[in-house]
């Protein structure tokens, strides 16, 4: 093992970091919105919405992300040209569709954990349903949602590496190019592993920080 060589290739791999982070942040943004909508649909009074949310979760969680990515990349444009996306946005779309199913579960379990007696109290105080959701339920459920939400975020960060297969130039793709150029796999892979470990460990610390920030102040 050649430590100097690792130091040489880290900067080259880091050229893919903005793409990795871009995939991650866009997917987190879209999947959080999608997950919240799915969670609300799942708890809605309208049967069709509940049914859709359940079917969506079953479908997405039953299929490998890689296949979803191939589907968005190869099959969706066959339905309509409007779905013809660049590799980057294909990866964002697939990661968002996939993560949303898991975030919906995280958000729903947090909302369900808030005691129903509080709804009766809020109603007795004359609050509307929307007001009650926004001011009473969400602040309390955020605390419960943080751990599974951040667990999903860490998974999504790691799964951005799958964008390699549709030629998005993120860190894993750059690393495989270095491997074939240098005829050497160990050092480039160690460099890549160290970067991913640093990123996921950072997110774990972020989770601890969020849990502290949302802790009950009594």
């Amino acid at each position: 093992m050649d430590l100097g060589f690792i130091a040489d290739i880290v900067p080259e791999i880091l050229e893919g970091l903005p793409t990795t982070i871009g995939l991650f942040l866009w997917s987190m943004l879209l999947s959080t919105v999608g997950g919240l909508l799915l969670a609300l649909a799942r708890m809605s009074a309208v049967g069709a919405l509940r049914w859709f949310a359940v079917a969506y979760g079953w479908l997405i969680r039953g299929i490998p992300l890689l296949l979803i990515m191939f589907y968005v990349f190869f099959a969706l444009p066959e339905f309509s040209r409007t779905f013809l996306l660049s590799p980057f946005w294909t990866a964002v779309a697939a990661l968002s569709l996939w993560t949303a199913a898991y975030q919906a579960e995280a958000i729903r379990s947090g909302i369900l954990a808030v005691d129903n007696g509080q709804y009766e109290a809020a109603e007795a105080l004359g609050m509307t349903r929307a007001h009650y959701m926004r001011r009473i339920v969400l602040p309390q459920s955020v605390r419960i949602i943080v751990p599974p939400f951040m667990g999903n975020a860490i998974n999504t960060l790691k799964q951005t590496s799958l964008a390699t297969v549709i030629t998005v130039p993120e860190m894993a793709l750059i690393t495989t190019r270095i491997i074939s150029r240098e005829f050497n796999a160990l050092e480039p892979l160690l460099a890549l592993a160290i970067i991913y470990l640093a990123l996921t460990t950072l997110l774990v610390f972020g989770q601890a920080g969020l849990e502290r920030a949302f802790r009950l102040k009594v």
């Binding site: 390699t164 894993a172 991913y196």
Partner: peptide, 9 residues
């Protein structure tokens, strides 16, 4: 801490 894909690599 690292993607399954990297372990596979």
């Amino acid at each position: 801490g690292m993607p399954a894909l990297v372990i596979l690599f």
